[in-house]
Structure formats: C-alpha cells, structure tokens
Write a protein that binds this DNA or RNA. Structure first.
Lengths: 132, 132
DNA sequence: TAAATATAGTTACCATGATAACTAGTTTAA
DNA sequence: TTAAACTAGTTATCATGGTAACTATATTTA
C-alpha cells in the first residue's frame, strides 16, 4: 500500500511509516484481546486503569477525581460517567472533601481491590500471549 | 507500576509487558495525532481507510460493502453508517449490483479521490513526526 | 473586600465502536 | 423444487470516547 502513495518519500521515511503501521496494528490487536478479557470480568480498559491508579498510589487510600483524570489522560465527563458506574457496581466509593467542597475523594472498596487482584494475572498473561 | 504486581513473573515476561505497554502508549499517541489531523479534513481513521481500500484496489473501480468490512475488519453496522455519511458528503457513490441484488457497489467520486490526495502527504508526515 | 479568574465536577450532545435481531436475496440439499 | 441454511445489508440499542456549556466553589487581583 505504502509504495503506491509515497514515491516522493525517502527510504528512511518509508521505514518509519511501515514501523508505525506495524505498531498500530499490534497495539490494536492487543487492545482488542485485552478488552475481550476484561469484558468477561465486567471491566474495561478504563475501569481497570481507574482501579489501578488508586491502588498503586503510595501513602494515600484515595484520589481526587481530577487527579485520576490527569493521570489517565481521560476527559472529565468520561471520568464522571465511569466513576458513577464503578460506584454503583460497588468497586469504588466517592465522598465529598471537607477542605475543598468542589472535590470528590475516590477510594477502592474491598470488592474493588479483590477484583483487581483477580484480574491482574490474566491481564499480564494476555499480554505475554501476544508479545511472547 | 509493573513491579508492584508482578513478583511472580520472570524477567522475560516483565520485559514483554513493558514492551506491550510501550507499544500501546505509542500507538495511542499516534492514533490521537492522526485523528486530530483527519478531523481538520472532515475525515476519521475509518473514513480515510474506506477511501484508501477502494482506491488501492487494482483492476476494479468499486468494492462491495461486505468486502470493505472484511478488509478493514470493521462491523457491518458501523460500515453501513459510515458509508451513508460518505455518500452524503459526496466522497463515495453507492449503486445496486445487478447480479446480486443484496449487494451494493461502492465507488470513489472525483471529490473522494481528490480528498485522498490532499490528505495523504500530511498523513505520512504526521507519522514521520512521531516516529522519526 | 469585591470582582475577575480559575478549577472541580456535571450535563447535554455528538462520533464511533460493538452485538443482536431483523429483512431480503441467494445457495444448498432433501 | 421447495425448505433450510447462508449471506448482504439495515435497524435498534448500548458502551465508550470527545467538546461545549453549565453550576458551584476557590483563588487572585484590583
């Protein structure tokens, strides 16, 4: 495909493009496999990552919603919606902050933490399956 | 992050995982940049790829919708919707097949072809920017 | 300190991906 | 040669991403 459209490009540039297309294909395969794996556990990439960033945080048991949004580089409306569902599902709790009344503190429940430990081994093995 | 969760994994497996996370991050950056570039041209990844697969087809000026779906590995409902918009936008034509009345032949219009040539150089340079 | 600005989160709306269930043709097989 | 199975495309519905515009609270600054 590349050849047809890139007569004017250098060999180096063509290599870059091939590499890019290869990377995107591989990543898209990985993401698809991982989404499939997660969906069997009532998770998605984002739901999983939200649990992870809270859990991995040293010295704190909760994060503010905006901190999660920044760490995961996700828009705040999407985060609002996803947090709402995670709270409904009992994986997270949300509580108002006393100092800054705009903010919400998001914490893992026990169910959230155990969900994470159940899912992690399979997550890594999904990755190894494709990368190995 | 990996260290916290992977005590039981071999070094090789940890490397795979790091590589996978690196690939996914890079691909996600690339995809985001490309989507931004396309959106300034009233395209998306899928809209672009549909134009490409028709254009690159040797010896034929049209493809059946289901051929496009297969080549791009996209669900048929998504294709139906996207083709409809591309036809509305004047980039494609859709015509009924005489031999198989279920099928639709999808072809590039002149506008579609020129849209493609306008967009391709920038597409490749977006890729080179990130990969280079 | 009052007004302007910035930040946290939400709501409304849209784009783009999927699956399930449907209609309408086509092919296969009893 | 009709009934069953298959295939092409559509519709309905849902999940998940985004931006713009809003409310409420905090902070800066004139």
């Amino acid at each position: 495909m590349i050849d047809k459209y890139t007569g004017h490009l250098s060999t180096h540039e063509k290599d870059s493009i091939e590499e890019a297309l290869r990377v995107m294909r591989k990543a898209s395969l990985l993401v698809r496999n991982i989404e499939t794996y997660f969906s069997a556990h009532n998770l998605s990439q984002l739901r999983f990552l939200i649990l992870i960033v809270i859990d991995r945080e040293a010295n704190r048991s909760s994060l503010y919603a905006h901190e999660i949004a920044t760490r995961l580089d996700v828009s705040r409306p999407v985060l609002t919606r996803t947090l709402k569902k995670l709270v409904e599902d009992g994986l997270l709790t949300s509580s108002n902050d006393e100092e800054d009344k705009r903010s919400k503190k998001i914490a893992l429940t026990e169910k959230g933490a155990s969900c994470l430990s159940e899912v992690l081994p399979g997550y890594f093995s999904e990755i190894n399956k494709l990368m190995g």
